[in-house]
Design a protein around this nucleic acid. Structure first.
Lengths: 242, 242
DNA sequence: TCAAGTTGTCTATGATACTAGACAACTTGA
DNA sequence: TCAAGTTGTCTAGTATCATAGACAACTTGA
């Protein structure tokens, strides 16, 4: 009972929790950043570590922070609302959320279509595909890593184009496609693999949302198919009803 | 823990105290009025009576309420700051405090000067005096009851005049005295007697401040002497230093 | 691989908060 | 004078708050 007068009627852990929350609100603890260690917080508030834990538990309950055993306690990034509509453009969605979208080419390669990919793209099995591996950011936070396949016949040099324009929408525009829409979207979840964990700056064992989608042109002809892995703790899919 | 969620970190009694304080602040519980009985408050907040007592104790500590055993708990009137200067006018002081001064004649009579009164008024022992018993209010709250003596020779019919003008300043003005000042002020305290208790609307046993004062004209000649009893819980004398 | 640092969990102790019931002391009004 | 209502005080039990220490489980970086 050192920072409160003896008869304040407010629990110590509440004062600590409020103090940390204020720190998050005014940016002293930035989103995604690590909070000071529990012992350190206990020191600054001159309070027992258990009291700090009580405060952090209350904040975690409300989703403001997330504790990672052995590593630290992190300020939860507010999850980006990501609507799933027929018109789904990463850059537009992120921009609408008040953040700056950015794309980064990780790798572009050529491969042949598996039966499944061929079916989705409406081409024959074994056809030549361009495979683009890209990482997408909102402000400087990685949101998702996506693998996109396009028919090499229709989109030659797609990898180089993407590297330049850094946006799938602009890539398609480069080939004269002014509009397209989402034909199908399937969402599931998985545990992040080591490669994606590094790309998304996620700890091992954290969940990712896996989105398989196919975009088609105005005539319904498949343009590309994508498998994207979203850092689950950073986004929230919104499905409009009706 | 009925009116707060289980993990609020704010003590129940604090919520009750805050609620009552808000009630006082917004006038739901008027100054001087009796609060609901502890059991009743406990009922409205769905809380144990002891918790209510804890809340009331906190408010009493801060001087917002005052408990009277067997009677009830009352909202403390904010004490009126009453400066003691050479220029001391009840009506001016009350008016400066943002309240409406009022005087009320209780009794006017004639008596002869005791040695002490004679000395204070600078007249001979046994001289005829007019004794005025008056009650003074701020807004409709009785503040003090005062007994004033004036020389009948100089101020004939003072009682009737006071009854009409209801102010000692205006009474003196009636006799052509435009200014006067406080020659001496002595302050002590006592327990209210039954008569004054009724007049001041005080419980028996409560303290009063007893003020003996003599006012003189600009030449230093005594005009009147007064013994006033102030309800201690309603005023606070302020002595300016320097 | 290891040491340092971090969060998670356990036991233990004392203080405070809240509830519950009972009775004393006192005031008020009939 | 008395009954009803009020505040004051006491004992008791349960739950929460806060402190303290120890160790496990895990991450990180050298």
């Amino acid at each position: 009972m050192s920072i409160q007068d003896a008869a304040s009627g407010v629990a110590l852990w509440r004062l600590v929790a409020d103090g940390i929350e204020r720190g998050i609100a005014d940016g002293r603890f930035a989103a995604g950043e690590k909070l000071p260690a529990e012992m350190e917080i206990a020191g600054t508030y001159r309070v027992n570590r258990h009291t700090v834990r009580r405060a952090l538990a209350a904040l975690a309950e409300r989703g403001l922070v997330r504790a990672e055993r052995g590593s630290g306690t992190y300020v939860e990034t507010q999850r980006l609302a990501y609507p799933l509509r027929s018109r789904t453009r990463f850059s537009e969605i992120v921009d609408a959320g008040g953040h700056e979208p950015r794309g980064q080419l990780i790798d572009a390669s050529v491969e042949t279509a598996s039966r499944e990919l061929a079916r989705q793209l409406g081409i024959r099995t074994g056809a030549v595909l361009i495979r683009i591996e890209a990482l997408r950011f909102a402000d400087r936070v990685p949101i998702c890593v996506g693998t996109t396949w396009l028919a090499a016949e229709r989109f030659p040099d797609a990898g180089q184009i993407y590297e330049r324009v850094r946006s799938m929408t602009r890539l398609l525009a480069h080939y004269g496609i002014r509009d397209y829409r989402r034909a199908s979207t399937r969402v599931t979840a998985a545990i992040v693999d080591a490669t994606d964990a590094a790309r998304l700056d996620l700890s091992l064992g954290r969940p990712v949302l896996v989105v398989d989608s196919t975009d088609v042109d105005v005539d319904g002809k498949p343009l590309l198919t994508t498998r994207a892995r979203f850092a689950a703790e950073r986004i929230e899919f919104v499905v409009e009803n009706g």
